[in-house]
Amino acid sequence: MKIEKIDSILKKHEYRHSEIIGIMQDVQGIENYLPEGTLRYISEKLELSLTRIFDIVTFYKAFSLVPRGRHMIKVCCGTACHLGGAMQNLDRIKRTLHVREGETTEDRMFSLETVNCLGTCALAPVIQIGEDYHDAVIPGKIDNILAAYSAGHERQEVATD
């Protein structure tokens, strides 16, 4: 990450220690993860110990210390989705992509994550891929949904109903 870019984020947050979470969210928003070098630089600039930064990064689920794939798959595991079969969907994705939660496929195409609740419970079970929400997902449709992304379409038009 370019030094100027980090500086502008730090400036936006007025170099405040209390803003560290927002600063790292902004960095991750651009980089997709938190590179070690960037964290070291932030630590120096803010005069904030790396220990504290590491404490925060590992406490909050949203942060990642490893690079992630092009398409972020978020399997919603909220109660409504769980009852609707989110676990079976998750199993199917794991088997198809050969990854576990928190991992990225070898071709860097997909990263797989579970989330507590996306707040779209009326559409359960829901899977979010990038910006797209797929509603009422069933195990039998998973392979088709994933194949459309592998084929490289940016906006997906996958029939899920």
Binding site: H17, E19, I20, I21, M24, Q25, F59, N116
Partner: peptide, 26 residues
Amino acid sequence: IDRGAGAFVCGEETALIISIEGRSGT
């Protein structure tokens, strides 16, 4: 506006306050 970072416990009031202060929300 402060954005949460994916920690359920931060809905608890003392944890939320600590999170706004820029620390791990316990």
